[in-house]
Design a protein around this nucleic acid. Structure first.
Length: 424
RNA sequence: GGUGGGGUGGCUGAGUGGCCGAAAGCGGCAGUCUUGAAAACUGUUGAGGGUUUGUAGCCCUCCUAGGGUUCGAAUCCCUACCCCACCGCCA
């Protein structure tokens, strides 16, 4: 959520900044609601004040032993007016709140112009896509031949966009998760957390998935208003919802390994083959809470942590900065890391690292006590995948495949595979 | 599942209808003292919002959340969520 005061007082400037996203802010509606809010709030507070002072007078009169009956008679109409005004105010504030909560974050200055992913800008590449001297097989056929990747059975168990892994591939998948987690803990200074995979709507509101993107989530039919997490970003970031953090504790860096559940509504027919787009996948998520002036550096650092995993796994990748039209709702700046997928002859997203500025912090009321002002001020949040495990598995299988259908285990993973160097 | 007790500021914890945005302590901040620090002492210290040129003043709201009673609610009633204790059941 953007700062209400800024939105209200400088709607034109906000609207201009949001154009970079291709978002058009309804200034007229905003101004109208704001004018209404102002008058209704003024009226309500005046009535509240009257009501308060009369109640006090009644208290004094009673204490003095006076007859309070005439005073009581006076407040009848006031109470009715006040109730009506409060009702009206609540309605206006709810409308304003809905409008404000639906406004996306403002892209950072460094975010390039553009409306689609075609306008994203490549920042750097690492490694060189391998030249194969045999016909490249995609991970679905590779996995099928190895007997460890089975989509048909998963369809029987659940439906489309699920997979059953077994044997060496299941172990490789687990090894990848462990390896990433260990690397971030011991080499990058993150604290491991283990969090719930089911969250309430307040948490989803805090990180920005709700109220706008409910259709992307799996909601439990249980009447407790609970959802499966679409990413560990939600539980980790919300750990500090409503809290005031000690300045000395910043920056806070957390890493978690969780499953992620996404309905993929609206992506029917996209990436239907293989592990690219699943309803359930595992991810190692990195989250940082930082002081406002440190978020740019934190985003660079966090992205480097994610890239380090790909380097250790000897997987070629490139890093792009998303253009204004392609960044997520809550993000002010996003770097996507894309791994080389040989069967598709192109780079595919494997990590998305974003800075949210104070956008999430404002929704969550997560603050730190600024030693200079002594006041609680909003922190900045930064997060990213480090990495998506399923897509990494796919990349390892395809990039390290051999002519005989076997897959070479990258050296970094071998300790996690009991020393195994080839999956056959 | 049963019974009972609770959820108050950064933290601990008082407060059972008006004098309570809220005692006290801790912590924080400022000062005195000190070569410096600690200790001690003194003062100060919740958050959000409205109005406003204003970090001035005035005003509103907030004691888990949502309803209710009342002229008036941290305080009484109802509901939800959470915590604690004991009992039962069980991995």
């Amino acid at each position: 959520m953007l700062d209400q005061k800024t939105v209200r007082t400088q709607p034109e400037a906000i609207a201009e900044a949001l154009k970079k996203r291709g978002y058009s802010l309804d200034i007229a509606a905003l101004k109208q609601l704001e004018a209404e809010r102002r008058s209704v709030q003024g009226k309500t507070e005046e009535l509240q004040q009257q009501s308060n002072s009369r109640a006090k007078n009644i208290g004094k009169a009673k204490a003095a032993g006076e007859d309070i009956a005439p005073l009581l008679a006076e407040v009848g109409q006031l109470k009715k007016d006040l109730a009506a005004a409060e009702h009206e105010l609540a309605a206006v504030q709810a409308s304003l709140e809905t409008l404000l909560a639906g406004i996306p974050n403002i892209p950072a200055d460094s975010v390039p112009e553009g409306l689609s992913e075609d306008d994203n800008v490549e920042l750097r590449t690492w490694g060189t896509p391998r030249q194969f001297d045999f016909d490249v097989v995609d991970h679905v056929d590779l996995g099928d031949a190895l007997g460890g990747l089975d989509f048909a059975t998963a369809t029987k168990l659940t439906g489309s966009r699920f997979a059953v892994m077994s044997g060496g591939i299941a172990r490789l998948h687990r090894a990848l998760a462990q390896f990433m987690l260990d690397t971030h803990i011991s080499e990058h200074g993150y604290t491991e957390v283990n969090v719930p995979f089911i969250v309430n709507s307040d948490s989803l509101y805090g990180t920005g998935q709700l109220p706008k993107f409910a259709e992307d989530l799996f909601k439990l039919s249980d009447d407790r208003d609970l959802y499966l997490i679409p990413t560990a970003e939600v539980p980790i970031t919300n750990m500090l919802r409503g809290d005031i953090i000690d300045d000395a504790d910043l920056p806070l860096k957390f890493v978690a390994h969780t499953p992620c559940f996404r309905s993929e509504a609206g992506s029917h027919g996209r990436d239907t083959r293989g592990m690219i787009r699943q309803h359930q996948f595992e991810k190692i998520e990195l989250v940082q809470f930082v002081r406002p002036d440190e978020s740019d550096a934190a985003l660079e650092g966090l992205t480097a942590c994610a890239e380090a995993i790909l380097q250790k796994l000897e997987l070629p990748y490139r890093t792009v900065i998303l253009c204004g039209g392609d960044i997520g709702f809550s993000s002010t700046k996003t770097f996507d890391i894309e791994v080389w997928v040989p069967s598709q002859d192109k780079y595919r997203e494997i990590s998305s690292c974003s800075s949210f500025g104070d956008f999430q912090a404002r929704r969550m009321m997560t603050r730190y006590r600024n030693p200079e002002s002594g006041k609680p001020e909003l922190v900045h949040t930064v997060n990213g995948s480090g990495l998506a495990v399923g897509r990494t598995l796919l990349a390892v299988l395809e990039n390290h495949q051999n002519a005989d259908g076997s897959v070479t285990v990258p050296a970094a993973l071998q300790p996690y595979m009991g020393g195994l160097d080839v999956i056959k």
